[in-house]
């Protein structure tokens, strides 16, 4: 039902989520990612959500928690490609996800991660 893939691009983990995600899928993803970040000592996590037609409060919390756990492991998280209708709905729902990095495209997201690496 959902297709989630995690690809390692040098020191960045690129996560692509597509289709319908159950709460269980979301929790499994969070666990897998955190383990992955710790194992690979990745510097950044890019989560491509352009394939999602819905982000509800559960999934939003999952994204927020992934970012929080990754930050503890010294990796920056950037959510990429959120659709306009999903963004409007999240804001109406009352979720602004402060502190979560965002980018329009995977390329922009990589730029952002590299930029913050340079600034370090």
């Amino acid at each position: 039902m959902s297709a989630t893939s995690v690809v390692e691009l040098q020191d960045v983990l690129l996560v692509t989520i597509q289709g319908e995600l159950t709460d269980e899928d979301a929790m499994a993803l969070q666990e897998e990612l955190t383990t992955n970040v710790a194992r690979s000592s990745a510097r950044g996590v890019l989560i491509d959500v352009s394939g999602l037609d819905l982000v509800d409060s559960f999934l939003a919390r999952t994204l927020h928690d992934i970012a929080g756990a990754s930050a503890l492991l010294a990796a920056e998280t950037v959510v990429v490609g959120m659709r306009p209708e999903v963004a409007i709905t999240l804001v109406e729902l009352g979720l602004t996800l402060p502190g979560l990095g965002t980018a329009l495209t995977v390329a922009d997201g990589l730029d952002r991660l590299n930029g913050s690496a340079r600034r370090r």
Partner: peptide, 17 residues
């Protein structure tokens, strides 16, 4: 519209949970 659909489905997801 697409925005309205998304709002509907999101509300449904919250309440179903």
């Amino acid at each position: 519209s697409l925005v309205e659909q998304t709002k509907l489905v999101t509300a449904a997801s919250e309440l179903a949970r």
